[in-house]
Design a protein around this nucleic acid. Structure first.
Lengths: 216, 216
DNA sequence: TCAATAGTGTCTATAAGACACTATGCC
DNA sequence: GGCATAGTGTCTTATAGACACTATTGA
């Protein structure tokens, strides 16, 4: 009996102002017809490393291509998989809702269905990390589809962190980060009110997280 | 051919005011007689999970028992081990120099010998993380053998971070953390000068890191 | 009393948070 | 003009850093 080595991806997005995770329904045993994270074995031929395996899984099972992807950590032991001692490397990604295919189904991270393996514990741990990290990094920008307005980004941060953020301070901190580029003359109206300026991410920060010194 | 799954431990300590890593000389192939991190295969029978495997390796190969141990991340791919596609889960631990056995040899992390596998890259990455983390956490306290004085701890922080820290501010921040417990009446003299108060770690923080909000 | 290190009080600079304000667009 | 949202100026408060000071010990 050999050790089982897999990767799993926690694909997070914002829907109805709540953090959701993308799951799919397993077909094969173990856990047939049970919801699970997109994941699978490392393919030695195709995957140059574990992160490449996670990207492949996201592409094949969730239809998401090359998002911002970060290693979370490993989960291992002899009880988490009925087939034997198993280790999974967990990655997480944040994407805008509209970039998801219909291969996956979204569930609120605080209201999960029954899940295969230890995936419930994995999602809980990742959600906690992401919420904490939102407080001192630019992580949540990856939840907004470009181009976006500051008020949209502001609402995204409030949804992830879970408490109101002062708009004036929010703008000042965003300025300090220097990750946004104004799109001259491009505005977006949300009602019959003043239009908001549109922005995109500065190229250098497209796939790189920006850590704030003192928190959002 | 099956995937290779191992754990490696980066055991760090302070010696001559410089960060050192504990290495041992390999005997078997691959890389016979080359310096390497303490590490090895997961033992499905003995190890309840990967962290337990790392603790076992530290106990057996380095003679260090149950230190503060944290997962760093994984290194994987088909080129890092001549035997095939391999993944290692890297853990790191910080210990006082005098708690190390003579099974291992200490090398400055900035002046390493030739190393097996990708262990040089692993040590570089861990050292960078530890130095960065020293700036906003209580991590370096694990480098001091208890009981210790504030000036000793102060010197440890300066050595890890690499720049002078103001003593008055250092004390204030330590107070805020509330991780030290004064040992009443116990003092230590280092020369013929004023004696320094001895402290031990508060029990609750023995194996738990304390993160500062705003950095040391 | 001197030298050396231990330990403290307090001023200053900076950054975060609170809040009131102005600007724009559509009715 | 009125209302709703976009966006700004500035005061207050918390915290980090600088620095000068006092305290204790052995010689």
């Amino acid at each position: 009996m050999t050790t089982i080595l897999t990767v799993d991806a926690v694909l997070l997005t914002l829907k109805d102002n709540r953090l959701h995770v993308a799951l799919f329904q397993r077909e094969a045993a173990p856990y047939p017809n049970v919801w699970a994270l997109p994941g699978g074995y490392v393919h030695e031929q195709e995957d140059s490393n574990a992160q490449a395996a996670a990207l492949r899984v996201l592409r094949d099972k969730a239809g998401v291509d090359a998002p911002y992807l970060e290693e979370f950590g490993t989960f291992s032991g002899r009880t988490r998989d009925p087939r034997g001692w198993a280790l999974t490397v967990v990655y997480y990604a944040l994407v805008p809702e509209r970039s998801l295919s219909d291969k996956v189904t979204l569930f609120p991270v605080d209201d999960l269905p029954e899940l295969a393996f230890d995936h419930a514990a994995i999602i809980d741990a990742v959600a906690a990390r992401v919420r904490s990290k939102a407080g001192y990094s630019s992580l949540p920008v990856f939840l907004c589809a470009e181009p976006f307005t500051i008020p949209e980004l502001h609402a995204t941060y409030e949804a992830v962190i879970g408490e109101p953020q002062n708009m004036a301070n929010f703008r000042r901190k965003l300025d300090d980060l220097q990750i946004l580029e104004e799109l001259p003359g491009q505005l977006r109206a949300t009602g019959r009110n003043r239009k908001a300026q549109l922005y995109k991410l500065v190229a250098a920060f497209k796939r790189q997280l920006s850590i704030r010194e003192r928190g959002f």
